[in-house]
Computed example of a mutant assay.
Amino acid sequence: MKALLVLSRWIDAVNIVIGRAVTWLILVAVIVSAGNALIRKLFSMSSNAWLELQWYLFGAVFLLTAGYTLLKNEHVRVDVLSQRFSPRTRVKVEIFGILLFILPASLVIMWLSWPVFVDAFVHNEQSSNSGGLIRWPAKLLIPVGFALLVAAAISHLIKCIAYLRGLCADPTQAANSGSSEQQLAEEIGRAAAEREQALQHRNL
């Protein structure tokens, strides 16, 4: 069990790094959207590439942070029912949901989406819109995103089993207090502080 918990921590670390990095794509999407709108209004110029880039960025944020969202216990649950359960019963329901819903569905989608990406990559599939982007990077996001979700589900399953054995804290409880927005702002602030400290050490 200890080895599995180490694996769980590694999976969580990967999802945290990817989740923190991908959140910046929201800012990029906003800048692209605003810039495209301004250029269209001021110069009567536009491009399908910019519109599709916004869709790609949205897809990346949605898919690549699925595992990170599970790690933070922010996936939708029927809280009206789960709040009435004891912590151990809630964790058992969580295990049931992982084994019967999250893992099977995610594995099937990951498996079926991979040939779609490979076909698009081999044929260098292009957008059907004039001036649009190549399609395979967007299609790659699907298997990669669901692979991260599968990994996060396995990590969560390990922690649930460990909790029932008395080896770790309740994984269904959020680690931090406050709203999701506050937690995200705190994480971004911590990441910026870590980068600043690293730069200071390099300059010394």
Rank of each mutant, 00 (worst) to 15 (best):
A34M: 05
T23D: 15
S130D: 10
L63K: 02
F121I: 03
D119G: 05
F101D: 00
W10I: 08
V118N: 10
Q183H: 11
E194D: 15
V32Y: 00
V118S: 12
F117E: 03
L149W: 04
I31S: 07
I188N: 08
Q200Y: 05
G145L: 02
A29K: 02
A152C: 07
S46N: 08
I158W: 01
L42H: 09
L141P: 02
I158N: 03
A49E: 04
I188G: 04
L204M: 13
N124Q: 15
S106N: 10
F85M: 15
V76T: 00
I158V: 11
G59C: 01
L64T: 05
A60Q: 07
A169R: 06
R195C: 05
K139A: 11
D119T: 08
M110K: 06
G19W: 03
K159W: 07
V61S: 07
A153T: 11
G189N: 13
V118F: 04
T172C: 08
A193T: 06
E186H: 07
A152Y: 01
D12V: 12
A21G: 15
L63R: 01
M1H: 09
I31F: 08
R84L: 07
A138P: 07
L157K: 14
G35E: 04
E52Y: 00
I98T: 12
E194S: 14
I39P: 03
K92R: 15
N48I: 00
G132Q: 03
H156Q: 14
W10L: 09
L184W: 11
S127I: 02
L57W: 04
A174T: 06
Q182Y: 13
V80G: 11
Q54K: 10
F62S: 11
V28A: 13
I134A: 14
V150R: 01
N36A: 07
V80D: 13
V91D: 09
A66H: 07
L140Y: 06
L167Q: 13
E187T: 12
E196D: 12
E194R: 15
L199F: 14
L64R: 12
V78W: 12
V116A: 14
H201Q: 10
R77L: 05
P104D: 07
H75E: 13
A60M: 11
A60I: 03
G145N: 00
L164M: 05
D79G: 11
A120P: 09
L27G: 08
L199D: 14
L157F: 04
Q197W: 06
A151W: 06
L63E: 02
G189T: 10
E187C: 07
A21F: 06
Q83T: 01
R135C: 12
A147V: 01
I161W: 13
A169Y: 01
A162R: 11
G132E: 00
L103M: 09
I31C: 08
E52W: 01
V118K: 11
L63Y: 00
V122W: 02
L141M: 10
